[in-house]
Amino acid sequence: MKLLFPTLIALLLIYALIKRCDPYDAFVEGARDAVPTLLSILPNLALMLGSIAVFRAGGGFELISRLLSPVFGALGVPAELIPLLVMRPFSGSAALAVLSDVLKTYGADSFIGNAASVCVGSTETIVYTIALYCGSAGIKKTSYAIPVALISGAVGVITGIAAVKLLLG
């Protein structure tokens, strides 16, 4: 795995050279296009990460966890996982920090620890990703993308917990 991508990249450069299509020039041209894109995602990221920081500092994620605990309970999700699941769609680094807390508190090999790991692995920081992708492409109306993403996340979490119960006991 560590060798796969470097090898592929080297092969790509050699292939391009053999085909006489000037890989150096092609690389610079492509990378140049990345600069305006990077600048154009910055405003989206600033607003997104700024408001998430405000919400998080005020304890908003804890509040949502408390409000949503009956819903999660009805779906068979253990209460210990709720803060993690509420955080997950918004911030990847925050979710990993919460996961690390959960693993420390309940043990990395416990049912809760395994279930938390699977939930993080089978979901994505999707609200953030949609904001980033749509913002950088100039798409203002996300239509039904967010509800679909949340449905997919919920299915991932529920089947993930079931799979941990079945496979890891």
Binding site: C21, F27, V28, G30, L45, A46, L49
Partner: peptide, 29 residues
């Protein structure tokens, strides 16, 4: 939080430049 966005953008920049550059090499080939 917005400062974090600048840092994230800066940390994305390297891989972004590399992958977009390589993508264009593959495109031209």
């Amino acid at each position: 939080g917005a400062d974090g966005a600048v840092k994230l953008c800066a940390s994305l920049a390297g891989s972004y430049l590399i992958w977009m550059g390589l993508m264009n090499v593959a495109k031209r080939a």
